[in-house]
């Protein structure tokens, strides 16, 4: 039992002393997951709004496929990206495997169906009324999408944060395409996983605490903000 307490003590020491390695890892985690979430959001929010409002053939089947793909396991995404980017793969010439760029690509693909699905569902349920009013006031297709995004921005923000949380807490995809290389592609989750298999707990605990803290802060911010309205 002592080593657990010892682990916590060492963990706090690492955090308080602003240990460079720990904070580099945290920074990279935030950078990779934030970038991935932003890229996916920029594409999927307008697209999801558009698809949710539009009536088209096979919409029901489309919904079902989309909702299913929202929970695609991260290791599958990692595997697909690794195969595509490996030197022998179709995109091998880009030399991206085992770089932060590859991690961003993998996480972008991971959260894309999630953001698209959540946005689509929101737009399908709540967008019709906004579309009606917008149309009657002379808004064109593009205006309607912008209007719907602005009207639903709080809910969309909750969706984006959900996606970000998924990205920052996943280990499968970044481990496979990043390779957990020290000072280059090591993020919070891959480090925790590695430190555990090394039996080295303090850094794992420190990073675990940071991950927990981040979830708390982000979610309470959202909670307060959405509670205001």
């Amino acid at each position: 039992m002592d080593y657990i307490l010892e682990g916590f003590r060492e963990a706090l020491k690492l955090l308080i002393s602003f240990d460079k390695e720990v904070y580099d890892i945290i920074t990279l985690s935030l950078f990779v997951s934030t970038t991935a979430t932003i890229i996916a959001s920029l594409i999927c929010i307008p697209l999801g709004i558009h698809l949710g409002l539009k009536e088209f053939k096979g919409k029901r089947a489309f919904s079902r496929i989309l909702y299913t793909s929202m929970s695609v396991p991260s290791v599958i995404v990692g595997l697909v990206v690794a195969i595509a980017l490996s030197r022998r793969g179709p995109l091998g010439g880009l030399n991206l495997l085992y770089t932060p760029k590859a991690m961003i690509i993998a996480q972008t693909l991971l959260v894309t169906p999630l953001i698209l699905g959540l946005t689509y569902s929101l737009s399908k349920n709540r967008g019709k009324e906004i579309e009606k009013v917008g149309t009657s006031l002379g808004a064109g297709r593009g205006d309607i999408i912008v209007l719907t995004i602005k009207e639903l921005k709080l809910d969309l923000l909750v969706n984006v944060v959900t996606a970000f949380s998924r990205a920052i807490s996943e280990v499968g995809a970044v481990m496979i395409v990043g390779g957990n290389i020290k000072n280059r592609t090591r993020v919070i989750t891959t480090t925790i996983s590695m430190m555990n298999s090394m039996g080295d707990y303090p850094m794992a605990i420190a990073l675990g605490l940071v991950l927990l803290l981040m979830s708390f802060v982000i979610n309470s911010l959202i909670y307060t903000y959405s509670g205001e309205d």
Partner: peptide
Amino acid sequence: MTLVFQKPYLFR
């Protein structure tokens, strides 16, 4: 043309 609804929807 425009339509004013029975239950108005105003933007946030």
